[in-house]
């Protein structure tokens, strides 16, 4: 959406343009279906290569795949580490330096978009946690292997759905019934929260499985009702993982342009949307400053949520 012309058009962008500029909802639905099929095929293909589709399992590095160390591989390791660090940190450094250079430029109506971004991120985090915690519990509590796998695969498959495809579905479902523009923040928060379920599950599910393996029988023999398991045991024991998941969802959501472009009119917007408009109108000096602000908000919120200094969090986390 930042530019590139017709040659750089993706299915995502085509969906966006079909709804916003042409108003052709049937075409948007067709494109969304195409996107969904493409992503599902990619997921199946990646499963074929990796052997499984579960992120938590693919994160485990096995010793036997490590190549023997030689001087060449040693320097190659350094080269790639420096390359990847530069890839991540150079844009961040550029944003900070340009943002600091343009700090004096007055930027109008900045507070409202910033507050809206925080609101969307809060909502996304809440929705995400509300869904992912019970799903994890459902997966670890299910006794039938088939249903267990079905729930697990089903939840991780959400990763196939792109925000614009999900947003388009919501748009088609709701545009006749509610004022989409007035509820833009709500819908964006909801979409972000739901679509980040695979990310939070990749963080939370291993912890749930560990607790089930260690204390499942004990809970069972004591007679802990399923309704109490989550609040009394899983949440207090997994506070560290939950905080990390919340921090990630919040930070990703606060900086995401996302589906708000589908729902929002000109009056309600988030900070990324405001940034997008600044770039669109070539107000680059202001854009640098807003980008820096957005970056700081994401970093600070991540740090605050993950390191929230509440005594109860420190005391109750499960040791490995």
């Amino acid at each position: 959406m930042l530019g590139g012309g017709p040659s750089a058009t993706t299915v995502e962008l085509a969906i966006y343009q079909t709804i916003i500029f042409e108003g052709d909802l049937a075409a948007a639905a067709r494109l969304s279906t195409l996107q969904l099929i493409l992503l599902s095929l990619l997921l199946i293909l990646s499963t074929k290569f990796t052997g499984n589709m579960f992120i938590e399992q693919t994160l485990i590095l096995k010793n036997d795949i490590r190549a023997p160390k030689t001087l060449l591989t040693h320097w190659l390791d350094y080269f790639f580490i420096v390359l990847f660090v530069s890839f991540i940190f150079l844009p961040i450094l550029i944003i900070i330096s340009k943002g600091l250079a343009n700090i004096s430029i007055p930027t109008d109506n900045l507070i409202l978009p910033a507050m809206n971004s925080i609101l969307v991120a809060l909502l996304a985090t809440f929705i995400n946690l509300t869904f992912s915690l019970p799903i994890c519990l459902l997966i670890v509590d299910e006794k039938q292997k088939f249903l267990k796998t079905l729930f697990e695969v089903g939840s991780f498959s959400i990763i196939c759905v792109s925000p614009l495809v999900f947003g388009t579905a919501l748009f088609l479902l709701l545009f006749e019934h509610i004022d989409l523009s007035a509820n833009a923040l709500l819908l964006t928060g909801f979409t972000n929260g739901v679509l980040m379920i695979p990310i939070s599950m990749a963080i939370l599910l291993p912890g749930f499985k560990k607790i089930k393996a260690r204390y499942g029988k004990l809970m069972n023999i004591i007679g802990v009702p399923r309704t109490s398991e989550l609040a009394q045991f899983y949440v207090p024991l997994l506070k560290k993982n939950i905080k990390f998941s919340c921090a990630l969802v919040f930070a990703l959501s606060i900086g995401d342009l996302g589906v708000i472009v589908l729902f929002s009119g000109t009056d309600i917007g988030t900070l990324p949307m405001y940034l997008y408009r600044l770039i669109g109108s070539y107000r680059m000096d202001e854009a640098y400053f807003v980008a820096m602000l957005l970056l700081l908000m994401a970093f600070i919120s991540f740090w605050l949520i993950e390191n929230g200094n509440l005594n109860v969090f420190k005391r109750n986390q499960m040791s490995d």
């Binding site: 260690r214 204390y215 029988k217 004990l218 069972n220 023999i221 004591i222 007679g223 045991f233 207090p236 024991l237 005391r315 109750n316 986390q317 499960m318 040791s319």
Partner: peptide
């Protein structure tokens, strides 16, 4: 069900909740 049987069970480890 385990909870309704006339038994209590102590395992090899993890008999107490750490929190």
């Amino acid at each position: 069900e385990p909870k309704d049987r006339p038994f209590d069970l102590l395992f090899q480890e993890n008999n107490l909740f750490p929190h």
